[in-house]
Amino acid sequence: MTRPDPPDSGPPASRRPTLSLKGRALKYLAAREHSRVELTRKLAPHAESPEQVAQVLDELEQKGWLSAQRFAESMLHRKAARYGVARLKAELAQHQLPAEVASEATQSLRDTEFARAHALWARRFGTPPETPEDKARQMRFLLGRGFAGDVVRRVVRGDGLVTDE
């Protein structure tokens, strides 16, 4: 008994209609917030000219679908628990956000920098260093994550530790 060929499950990938630039941009924005720089980079290979990409992004900004402020808040929400203000500010700068948007977004993180650094340190190490090498390793870890030097010194020194008494 031979089985009949299965019905065609749809057009192969090569025959699918291509998305317009606006459609692609909306697909990316539906997944997560993007900066204008990111969308420009992602849409450029599919555009006939850079002006076409700029026009689509201008339209999305006018309609409120693309927002530097929302992108900054989203990125900080995703990464604040793992990185310090310096690192986050550098990442925002890579996306060429307006300076006032970046500074406004990171301002609230300055107040919580010690708590965030301490929580990260506790998850990674948990106990104060016993040797100078351990201290240096713990400090390098936190400094590499973008936490301020004075905050790192306080965390590694053991300030703010909750002890069981």
Rank of each mutant, 00 (worst) to 15 (best):
P129K: 08
A119G: 10
L39P: 00
A90F: 01
G23I: 08
H118W: 12
G146W: 06
L120R: 10
F114P: 02
M139I: 02
A86G: 00
P129Q: 07
K135L: 12
V53E: 06
P132L: 13
P12T: 10
R137W: 09
D134C: 07
F141L: 12
M75I: 11
P6L: 07
L143M: 13
P98Y: 01
A47C: 06
R157I: 01
R145H: 14
R78D: 11
A72E: 03
A148L: 08
G126R: 11
H95Q: 15
M139T: 10
T106K: 04
S67P: 02
G84F: 04
S103T: 15
F147S: 03
D159S: 11
A44V: 02
A117L: 05
M75T: 11
L76S: 02
L26A: 04
A44D: 06
L26S: 03
L109F: 13
Q62R: 14
H46Q: 07
R140Q: 15
P50T: 08
M139D: 02
M139C: 08
T131P: 03
F114Q: 03
A68D: 12
G144N: 09
A122G: 00
P45Q: 07
L109V: 01
A105V: 03
P11D: 14
H77P: 00
V56E: 01
R145E: 12
G84W: 02
A81M: 06
F147L: 08
F114H: 05
R36M: 01
V37D: 02
Q138W: 10
H77C: 01
K22W: 03
T163C: 00
A25C: 10
L142R: 04
L39V: 04
D134K: 10
A13Y: 08
E33F: 10
F114C: 04
F141I: 05
L66C: 05
R24Q: 11
S103K: 10
T112L: 13
A102S: 15
L60R: 03
T18D: 00
P132H: 12
L92M: 07
P50W: 04
K42T: 03
R157L: 14
G10S: 10
D150E: 14
W65F: 15
S103G: 00
L19Q: 13
R145F: 09
S108C: 05
R15F: 13
S67D: 11
E133C: 01
E104D: 11
R15N: 06
L120H: 04
P128T: 14
D150C: 01
G64R: 09
K63A: 15
A13L: 13
F141C: 06
L39Q: 02
L142Q: 05
K89G: 11
A54I: 00
H46A: 11
L19D: 12
A30N: 14
E165A: 12
K79Q: 13
P12A: 14
A47R: 04
S74W: 15
L92I: 04
V162N: 00
A99P: 15
